[in-house]
Design a protein around this nucleic acid. Structure first.
Lengths: 234, 234
DNA sequence: TTGACTAAAAATGTATAATATTTGTATACT
DNA sequence: AGTATACAAATATTATACATTTTTAGTCAA
């Protein structure tokens, strides 16, 4: 019973961190979580140590675990490094993929598409995460996978706004993202590595724009009341 | 008392894995190690979970921890990926290094040089590890650092033979390696990134040759008795 | 001798209790 | 009033005891 709970708990914690349900930088309550998942603190702490190694949380001596933070200083490096890692992984995935793996990728994409059309922000972001993680699996490179996984932690957290459609423009952006995934799948399946890289870059550009907006949002209008209405206001 | 022991134990285990004192793929005895380090199983298990996240060990459900293995299939990827990671890290380190970090690097290099001249294989390999890890620190890129650390785990284990001088030729190779480190330091300190990359590639080539020999050693001579001595043998 | 079954033992995983540390607060002292 | 110290509560860590699982050794029948 509790054996399964441990795995469930680990997965759940990962998801909750990715979906910002557990806020970046916030303290993790060992007692509360252990009760919540019906396990004791010992296995929960072991999970936290695992997650610490994966970069999800940070352990501090004698003051427990905190959710990994996302300072601006690291964000800069994030934007710098992402294209290199994503493209390299995409290339290797294209060269190494097996048909089983492609099938799994398509399955994830099916779920992703459905979730996006339903407008479920958190789920969509998580499935997007799994999509890119699966490409990482296909690259079959444990060394780069370590980088990729770390990038995706921050990427997914930053993209929580991305999949939240507020306007027609946002809707369009999301469907564009879905289309790019489809194109990436066929490039990978067809072994066209340079095309896969190209599509990966385009895909990155799309989400980068949105994420940069999140990190550095559009400034508030200087004229609090728009020019048009000003005359009437006074 | 035991608080310190935990950190000591974690460091020691890492070192013992890197030095092949704990063989790749071998089982890890929780009870034995916890006694050895004077801590109980709980903190030891937490350490193992941490090391699992870092790629030093592999946890298997209900059958404990094993030292991370080094199968040949992964070695291929290792040789493929190393230049990219090492060079990218070297470039970023050159751009981001602080004087404090350079000083630390020089300190490590001092110890490395001394150890190499004394012919202490394990220690030399470990200091070489710390040298390259320090360059990783200087790059200040947590994403690539994850890859670098994983590469270095295997690199250091493979290079255990490297620093074992058997012949004059080996001596020369080791001193060449020391010199390359020195050159890398000044390139990094001077901010000459393209030079740093170049030196990194040369350094890689040197150790790659040796490591490949280890993975795929020179074939045994077909003539068991050399031509010269054959006549006398019969 | 081989194979399947069983029981004992060894090792792993979990929960709880005991110990350490940190942090907040109140009180005494300068 | 401001600082320092001591005490208490909360929290984190470790140890131990217990439960579960795997491995091993041994028995018996084919």
């Amino acid at each position: 019973m509790s054996k399964q709970n441990k795995a469930i708990c680990a997965d759940s914690l990962r998801n909750r961190i990715l979906s910002l349900d557990l806020e970046a930088g916030s303290d993790i309550d060992e007692v509360g979580l252990s009760h919540e998942y019906g396990i004791s603190r010992t296995p929960l702490r072991e999970i936290l140590h695992l997650l610490a190694g994966d970069g999800y949380v940070r352990l501090e001596e004698n003051r427990g675990a905190k959710v990994a933070s996302m300072d601006l200083s690291v964000m800069r490096v994030f934007f710098q490094t992402a294209p290199l890692v994503y493209c390299t992984v995409a290339r290797q995935a294209t060269e190494c993929r097996t048909s089983t793996q492609v099938a799994a990728l398509k399955e994830i994409q099916r779920a992703f598409t459905a979730s996006a059309s339903r407008g479920e922000v958190g789920e969509t972001a998580l499935l997007n995460h799994r999509f890119h993680e699966q490409i990482g699996q296909m690259a079959d490179n444990p060394y780069l996978m370590a980088s990729l996984k770390r990038m995706l932690i921050d990427h997914t957290r930053l993209s929580q706004t991305f999949f939240n459609p507020r306007s027609k423009l946002d809707q369009n952006r999301i469907s564009q993202s879905v289309d790019q995934h489809d194109a990436m799948i066929s490039a990978i399946e067809g072994g066209e590595s340079s095309l896969a890289i190209d599509l990966t870059l385009q895909h990155w550009d799309l989400s980068r724009n949105e994420m940069e907006k999140y990190v550095r949002p559009d400034p508030l209008p200087i004229d609090v009341i728009s020019m048009k209405d000003r005359r009437n206001a006074f």
